[in-house]
Design a protein around this nucleic acid. Sequence first.
DNA 1: GGTGTAACCGACGCTTTGCCGGATGCCCGA
DNA 2: TCGGGCATCCGGCAAAGCGTCGGTTACACC
Lengths: 145, 145
Amino acid sequence: MKELDAKDRDILGILSKEARIPLKTLAGRIGLSRSATSERVAALEKSGVIRGYRADIGQMDTNLVSAFLMVTLVSTPSIGVLDQLARYSEVRRVSSVTGQLDLMVEVEVPSIDRLNTLRDIIATHPSVQDLTTLIVLRRDIERRE
Amino acid sequence: MKELDAKDRDILGILSKEARIPLKTLAGRIGLSRSATSERVAALEKSGVIRGYRADIGQMDTNLVSAFLMVTLVSTPSIGVLDQLARYSEVRRVSSVTGQLDLMVEVEVPSIDRLNTLRDIIATHPSVQDLTTLIVLRRDIERRE
DNA sequence: GGTGTAACCGACGCTTTGCCGGATGCCCGA
DNA sequence: TCGGGCATCCGGCAAAGCGTCGGTTACACC
């Protein structure tokens, strides 16, 4: 894959916020002809820098419950735990972190019951020493892009 | 705003993964004429259900540092803290949570220095009682949408 | 200077889009 | 039951968008 120059970064910056603007507009904004812009975008797509285009949907999954599970392991790293977490589609993100705990697990479940089930499953894994659950009451700030 | 029917949900499901497919293709997939589909999409955009379209960029700002800041307040709610947090674009998300702490703040900064600065600023806010920083070492699982 | 490569531009023809008139289905009051 | 009113659908037209091509410029290298 080639190196990204300034104009490529401009393109990415614009498309990451407005993925559907016409090529002509995009070309004008970065100071290139439409066809040159078209080729650059195509190259960015083919090389995998642009992985796809997604519509940003407003609140529709309204009654989902989000939570943070703070996990301490008996010894790091523990691949077994990650494998198990990966099996559940409700697990949105898992991060290895510094500090008192080892894993920050973010989940999105349809109900509190389901959250409890999930938490119990994870907590009883032999590699898990401690698990603290924080249920999200409200998203105060949420930035996209 | 109107209620969303099954076809609207189909549209959202498809566009949330492939925001740039031609209307014709989209129409064929949901079983409507192109123009009817066009009107539905336009309505979804105008009503705010579709907030925008974003290109999904692969890892390019690879050297960004992510962190969780776990904040305990002297008394909840504290609007002053949220106002301050909202001022920094590095603050990606803030969630009010249950449990031992009050706010889970997720940040993305260009350097550890910047993280320290940000943490100090937040920690010295009069409403903040305690602040624990967890630096993300690695994203083990990350799911989109 | 000659040659190769990479990136640019403008133009051509095809595809997609926005917009319109008219058809269809459904609700509700007379 | 009938007949407006309303929402939603379709097909077609003109305009705008797109991918692709040949030709041009810029630059590095021998």
